[in-house]
Design a protein around this nucleic acid. Structure first.
Length: 694
DNA sequence: CTCTCCCTT
């Protein structure tokens, strides 16, 4: 690669208009939020700038379990050293004055762990608990553990967490960390979220579909609780890492925005001098540029887009590392990282780098948010990622390599400065960076919304089309979701409203996509409530009927083998996935019992399982054409069986698919053979128009 | 002849 130049704008020391944290030795990687604030009409205080703030000692009354006073003193010292601590009093003042506040805090500010404690210490949670949402399970659990430790209580007592299949709470729990999906579920049975006086939506900048829906739910709950007598106010805190302040603030009634500086080590930024034609090659060249100069144990994290790319780059890097010209350099350990990798290989990236060695981790964006790797001093960012976008017109998801947003680019860069100062090399020019979107497209604007619509309806929200989304999905996207729900008999479209049917109400109870909920509801009709579960199957269990029956066979064999880990290993099956499937199944059985869905088993008559599948997935069927290709019946899209499918290579006349993803081609994933006669039985009107043979 | 990534009583 042509090499990198230093950025045209270096961080200006002692100039607050450029860099909020310039008065500290630890500058943030990101252009400071204060920049965004300057353009604001209302004065918005930078919390970090307040001095001489006193800290009240935590009030008594928390269950004491002190074992090691020194350890506790240590924890307290750490808490006091966090950037948010000097702003404690000022923050609480704002929280007392306003029902909704937005907090912008960079990584390391301590907002997620400290703010709930501050609220509790001041007993502002007397009338109801504090709920803090996280997009990821592991985060919810590990943060709760940390906070329980800091508050010197047992996890599951005053401080707890609740994620799917795992919960540590009791009636006395005041500070609860949950996944945002979990809070959404709670909102179905309690739309006003009456158990809480405080809801803190964390990582709001990620704009996951769940957070976006929650924005609307909590805003509505707050308003309703204010208007109805006998309700205590609902206090909202929206916590975000980026500066898309105006958008959030406008949505929440121009509420105040508070800034907390982060604790990041400085990161030197480098951009490509000129546009790179081949970002993979550019990135590889940069690895060796760094490798020649950097001291050993200064590890490199390289962001690329996908498995194939990553595997080929790791292979190449290993090959080049053997080159004689690098004999003087540290030994290079090259590792791949992506979600599909087996667990033990994922764990490899955490192994500390030995003396005289360097590791290079070549990763997807899993290392952007989900996995934090210690020891990283250099980040190389290719500036791209795979993005999934649902196209309601054709019914498929496109999975395409796209330019990342500036916010993501800063997030990636930040991975170099977690333990010490670092460097970030961008395989794109400064001008290319400036041309990137500031923020990524929110997930809710590029997803199938059938689940969201069903959930909103189940919460009693009458007009889902006019629901107050922070970013409103297109009419086409909303329409497609409603049409899908009406095909599934979950809703009835009336002249000017939507009505949830009895079946729809039941479907909403299942933690599943509506299509699959429908499959389960149709179980008793066909004498089987056995569900297939996601797992990695191998040839031995492959069924001619398709992937679903294959998975069912795997699952049954797993149970027969008494969920044995060795057995999985011997049969090339993923133990953890199968265990997870067991949990899912247990949960679904419980929901069935609650909804009065009879539990029956079809034993060996697996065609009735496929029949059930068709009742939920009949809009996802493709027909074999004379030329040997498939066309989807719903939208007449050309589609191919995915090579991992059990049906791949065969040519059944009708196949049902669970997912249609366009990568190189439009591929059908997880397929089963379907009998066209069933289709006419299930949805006669629909299939008459599709001209399906009998 | 192929696979960004989270998540749900």
């Amino acid at each position: 690669m042509a090499g990198f130049q230093e950025p045209p704008i270096k961080k200006a020391k002692n100039d607050r208009t450029v860099d909020l944290s310039a008065n500290t030795s630890q500058a943030p990687t990101q252009p400071s939020p204060s920049q965004a604030a300057n353009g604001h009409t209302k004065a918005r205080d930078g919390l970090g700038s307040f001095q001489n703030l006193k800290h009240k000692t935590p009030s008594k009354g928390t269950p004491q379990k002190t074992k090691n006073p020194e350890h506790l003193r240590n924890l307290l010292a750490q808490r006091h050293a966090l950037p948010i601590f000097p702003a404690r009093a000022r923050l609480l003042e704002e929280l007392r004055k306003n029902n909704t506040v937005i907090i912008i805090g960079e990584t390391g500010s301590g907002k997620t762990t400290q703010i709930p404690q501050y609220i509790h210490e001041e007993r502002l949670d007397r009338k109801g608990g504090i709920c803090v949402t996280q997009p990821r399970r592991v985060a919810a659990i590990s943060i709760a553990k940390r906070v329980a430790e800091e508050m010197d209580t047992n996890l599951g007592g005053l401080v707890g967490y609740s994620v799917r299949f795992e919960e540590a709470v009791c009636p006395a729990t005041k500070v609860k960390y949950v996944t945002d999906g979990m809070l959404l579920r709670e909102a179905i049975s309690d739309p006003l979220l009456t158990r809480y006086s405080w809801i803190l939506l964390d990582e709001a900048h990620e704009r996951t579909i769940n957070t976006d829906v929650l924005f609307g739910i909590v805003k509505d709950a707050q308003k309703t609780r204010r208007s109805l007598p006998g309700h205590d106010p609902l206090r909202l805190l929206i916590m975000s890492a980026t500066m898309d302040v105006d958008h959030f603030s406008q949505y929440f009634g121009n509420c105040p925005v508070l800034y907390v500086e982060g604790r990041q080590h400085p990161i030197e930024m480098f951009y490509a001098k000129k546009q790179q034609e081949d970002y993979v090659m550019a990135a590889m060249t940069t690895v060796f540029q760094i490798h020649r100069e950097a001291p050993p144990q200064h590890d490199i994290l390289l962001f690329l887009t996908g498995q194939e790319e990553i595997d080929s780059v790791t292979t190449n890097l290993r090959q080049i590392a053997k080159d004689g010209s690098l004999a003087e350099c540290p030994r290079l350990r090259v590792l791949s990282l992506y979600a599909a990798l087996p667990a033990h290989q994922q764990l490899d990236v955490f192994r500390a780098t030995a003396e005289g060695e360097r590791k290079v981790i070549v990763s997807t964006n899993i290392a952007e948010t989900s996995i934090t790797i210690p020891g990283i001093r250099y980040v190389i960012d290719c500036g791209r990622a795979k993005v999934r976008t649902y196209h309601p017109g054709s019914g498929f998801d496109a999975l395409k390599v796209k330019k990342i947003s500036q916010a993501q680019a800063w997030q990636r860069a930040g991975r170099a400065g977690r333990e010490a100062s670092g460097s970030c090399y961008r395989a794109y020019t400064r001008a290319e960076f400036d041309a990137m979107n500031v923020n990524p497209t929110p997930e809710i604007l590029r997803s199938n919304l059938a689940s969201v619509m069903l959930q909103l309806l189940a919460m009693g929200i009458k007009n889902v089309v006019t629901f107050d989304f922070i970013d409103k999905p297109s009419a086409e996207l909303l329409e497609a979701a409603i049409v899908q729900l009406s095909f599934l008999d979950a809703v009835v479209i009336k002249s000017d409203s939507l009505e949830l049917t009895e079946a729809g109400r039941k479907m909403a109870q299942f933690p599943l996509e509506p299509r699959y909920a429908k499959v389960i509801l149709s179980g008793p009709e066909h004498g089987c409530t056995e569900e297939e579960q996601a797992a990695n199957a191998r040839r031995k269990f492959t069924s001619v009927e398709g992937d679903h029956i294959t998975l069912l066979k795997v699952f049954r064999a797993f149970k027969a083998a008494k969920k044995n880990k060795m057995w999985c290993h011997e049969n090339f099956l993923n133990f953890r996935n199968l265990l997870y499937a067991t949990e899912v199944r247990k949960q679904l059985v419980q929901v069935c019992e609650r909804c009065g869905v009879a539990l029956t088993s079809c034993q060996q008559k697996t065609d009735s399982v496929r029949r059930c599948l068709a009742t939920g997935l009949f809009t996802s069927v493709a027909e074999l054409q004379l030329d040997g290709k498939y066309l989807t019946l719903d939208t007449k899209q050309e589609a191919a069986l995915h090579p991992t499918s059990a049906l791949f290579g065969g040519k059944p006349a009708y196949v049902l698919f669970t997912e249609l993803v366009q990568t190189g081609k439009a591929y059908m994933h997880l397929n089963s053979i379907v009998d066209p006669q069933w289709l006419h039985d299930i949805a006669p009107e629909y299939f008459r128009r599709k001209h399906v043979k009998r």
